[in-house]
Design a protein around this nucleic acid. Structure first.
Lengths: 119, 119
DNA sequence: CTGTATCCACAACGATACTG
DNA sequence: CAGTATCGTTGTGGATACAG
C-alpha cells in the first residue's frame, strides 16, 4: 500500500506518463466504457445487436466509438459474411484486460445509481 | 459471477440508468480521475499544490474540473485563511468511494503505460 | 496564493435522413 | 443488416494574460 504510493509519486508527479492519464485519455469518455462492458458480457455482437444492448446510443456515436476502440486495439471487427452482409465486434486481449476497470465502474454505479437528469 | 451478469441485464438493457453510464457521465473525462487520484493520495491540498501534483493540467482546466467535482459532491472546498488567502480541496465520502475505480484505472495504466503521443 | 477572463480549437455527442 | 452524411450543439481542453 505504501509501496504503491511511492511508485505513484514517480509516475504521476513531474511526468506526463501518469498511468491514470493514460487510462483516462483512452477510455475516459461517456460511451466507451459502456460499449466495452457490453462486449465483455455479450460479445461478440453485430452492430445492431450491440446497439440494442447499449441503451440510448445513436448509430453514429456507436460507429465513432467502435472506430476509436478498434484504432487503439481494444476491439476487433470481423466480417462474418458478405451476403447477407454481417460483421461482428469482439474484444481483443487488450480490450479484455480492461475488465477490472469496467467492473469497478459498474459496481460504483450500482451503488450510486442516479437518473440521467441528476447527472 | 453469473448472478452479477443477470443483474446487469436488468440495469443495462432497456434502461438509461445503466450503472456504467452513470459512472462514465460523472467522471469519464480526461482530468477528473487524475484530480481525484491526487486528492486520494495527498489530499487535502491547496490549488497550486494540487496543480503541481496533477502534472500537465492548466489552471483553467483544473478550476473547471474542481468546480464540476464540487457540484457533484465529490470534492469539498474549504477556505483555510483569508490573509493570506488559502483554500483546501479534499474528497468527500462520496469522492473517496470512487477509490476502487481510480485504483483499477491506475493499475491498468501502469501495465499499459504509453507515451502521450501514442494515445 | 487563488484563481478568472478571453479566445480558440477540437472532440464528443445528438437527431435526422439516407444508402449499399 | 450495417452503417454513413450532414448539421448543429455542447463539452473539454489549451494558451495566455490578468486580478483580488
Amino acid at each position: 500500500m505504501s509501496t504503491d504510493s511511492e511508485l505513484l509519486e514517480v509516475w504521476c508527479a513531474g511526468s506526463e506518463w501518469c498511468p491514470i492519464t493514460t487510462t483516462a485519455t483512452l477510455i475516459g469518455k461517456k460511451w466507451h466504457p459502456v460499449v466495452i462492458h457490453r462486449l465483455l458480457e455479450n460479445g461478440p455482437l453485430g452492430f445492431n445487436a450491440l446497439k440494442e444492448d447499449v441503451d440510448g446510443i445513436s448509430a453514429k456515436v456507436q460507429s465513432d466509438v467502435l472506430e476509436d476502440l478498434e484504432e487503439h486495439g481494444f476491439v476487433d471487427r470481423t466480417i462474418v459474411s458478405e451476403k447477407p452482409f454481417r460483421v461482428e465486434y469482439s474484444l481483443t486481449d487488450r480490450g479484455r484486460s480492461l475488465e477490472p476497470v469496467i467492473v469497478a465502474m459498474r459496481d460504483w454505479g450500482k451503488e450510486h445509481l442516479t437518473a440521467p437528469d441528476d447527472q
